[in-house]
Amino acid sequence: MSSVAPTRPAAESAAPVPSPSRPRWLHVVGLLGVVAMGFTVWLGLWVTPPDVFQGNLARLLYIHPAIATVALYWVGIVAAGGSLLYLWPRTRSLFWDRLAASAVEVGVIFSALTLVTGSLWGRPVWGVWWTWDARLTSTALLLLLEIGYLALRRVPADLPVRARRCAVAALLIAVDIPIVHFSVYWWNTLHQAGTFLDPGFKIHASPSMSWTFLLSFVAFSLVFVWLLGVRYQVEVLQDAVGQEELEISLAERWSEGRAGEALAQPEWSGEVRPQPEWSGGGAAP
């Protein structure tokens, strides 16, 4: 962890935060992600044939399940694991805290995308944008929980305090998710049988379709890792900038204080405190 050196900088000539040296592997992952995503788009839109039943709608199959997998599993594993490792005294390091926070923030994007792509698919197939299906409902609740975590994270605090607070919140959310899952599952399926096609299990079609389907998981996972890495770097920079700003405003406050003392002393000595205007002639009539 390279943070800004805690020397007090002069207010004006504060050195800009050094731009991060992004590790080489992150570039590689990003590049691979772009390539895999390009192939997915090409295969998904041009090469694969339209589905027998759903026509071109089935092409959503090449993005929606992959996005949902990232949103539910990868994000969950990184966020919960990072928080747990932060709280564990032996592995306590801000690295885990930042990693978990980055995962949740990327997770918000992926959860929202899951809902949007699912909604786009649901409108023509089910006839509605939204239905109170168990998976939809639990994903929506997951999104709200993640937004709550990010709101908590934005509350200013010292870094270790914030890290501990957020790690506990993440774990509390993590234990809630299975319960949310089961409760909405029962809620929806107790009275009526599930009538929905599950898009994840319909890939016994042409080989090009299943290959594209598999490739999409690789592509979105790579994109997830890349986003996670970039977001982690941004998190490091944000903390550094926050520290820098704190130092600067502290320095300003110090110099203000000293200048104020120097100015105030001779002016006030021996002079009568000026009276406010209204205190003299207020009751003339």
Binding site: L141, L144, L145, I147, G148, A151, L152, V155, A157, R165, V168, A169, L172, I173, D176, I179, V180, F182, S183, V184
Partner: peptide
Amino acid sequence: ALSAGLRVRDTLLPLLVLPVLAP
């Protein structure tokens, strides 16, 4: 307890706790 020391706790607490209580 999580929101205790925060200045924004009155607005943050419902956002945090209500989705958790949904089950």
